[in-house]
């Protein structure tokens, strides 16, 4: 066993040495200590909110949101599909327990009163911050994926501190979370195909040559809205939040199972 460990350690060291040699001596990631931008990043930064180039602008002062939902929009759509595939896979592992009622044992559910009271405040704050991330994703750091990931803290706390029975009494079931996820995914697809119906291209945001259709680029007080980026961020937020809520309701189902079941 010790020999195997030694061999593994040595082979990992050799691989890392080769990588470091390629990076430092051969320079596969560019020159050391880069000062200049790569050309692709420079182009994205140049076009993202440029009124002079009206066919290339995304009307979003935040670089990441502009690339995520405008320039590389289809990539993000497929990444969303990967995310929901993984969640569906997690559900399939425990699907026979998902419909079972939480068992009524003699012991008191949940953690102590102090933890519950603190968690109540934290859950609401988490939800508010997550929704704020989704709403302001086109002008400040934030966006659909980030808001969804922050939102996922709320169901974890709810299920682990208050238990699944309490969540179900609040009306939070896996069916409703799946419905939330599916309906917001449909809204997302609707935003994506709206330009196609209006005679433009799929995933079109601002006006392009050959198609004058354009989502609103500015809010009424000329705050940048990013066109479709705003709507896509918002719908992605609730879709991701619904998916993680399903996953963590399943966590509560596993927690309510007895040992050896």
């Amino acid at each position: 066993m010790r020999v195997t460990g030694l061999i593994a350690a040595i082979s990992i060291l050799i691989v890392l040495f080769a990588l470091a040699y390629g990076l430092v001596v051969l320079g596969i990631s560019g020159p050391p200590a880069p000062v200049k931008l790569r050309l692709l990043g420079e182009k994205y930064l140049y076009y993202m909110i440029n009124p002079a180039t009206k066919y290339f602008t995304a009307e979003s002062p935040e670089g990441v949101s502009a690339i995520l939902w405008d320039y590389r929009g289809l990539d993000t759509l497929y990444e969303t599909m990967v995310l929901f595939g993984a969640i569906i896979g997690a559900i399939l592992v425990y699907r026979e327990y998902l419909y079972s009622e939480p068992r009524k044992t003699g012991k008191i559910y949940g953690l102590s009163h102090i933890v519950r009271t603190v968690s109540k405040i934290i859950i609401w704050l988490t939800i508010i911050i997550a929704v704020a991330f989704g709403f302001t994703g086109q002008i400040t750091p934030g966006g659909g994926f980030i808001g969804g990931a922050a939102f996922a803290v709320a169901p974890v706390l709810l299920v682990l501190v208050y238990t699944l029975g309490y969540a179900r009494r609040l009306g939070l079931t896996h069916r409703r979370a799946l419905l939330l996820r599916a309906s917001f995914l449909l809204l997302l697809l609707l935003v994506i195909v709206t330009p196609l119906i209006a005679g433009g291209y799929i995933f079109q945001n601002q006006a392009k040559p050959g198609s004058a259709f354009s989502f609103p680029g500015r809010f009424i007080d000329s705050t940048p809205l990013g066109g479709s980026i705003f709507f896509l961020n918002l719908f992605e937020l609730f879709a991701v939040a619904g998916a993680f809520t399903v996953a963590f309701i399943l966590l509560g189902v596993i927690a309510s199972l007895k040992e050896g079941e």
């Binding site: 990441v64 995520l68 590389r72 996922a152 993680f244």
Partner: peptide, 22 residues
């Protein structure tokens, strides 16, 4: 700084979370 690497990272963070749950 370059905006493209963080764009690739954000989706990776969230997908990594779902894979870890699985």
């Amino acid at each position: 700084v370059d905006p493209l690497p963080p764009t690739l990272t954000i989706t990776a963070v969230v997908i990594n979370l779902s894979i870890t749950i699985l």
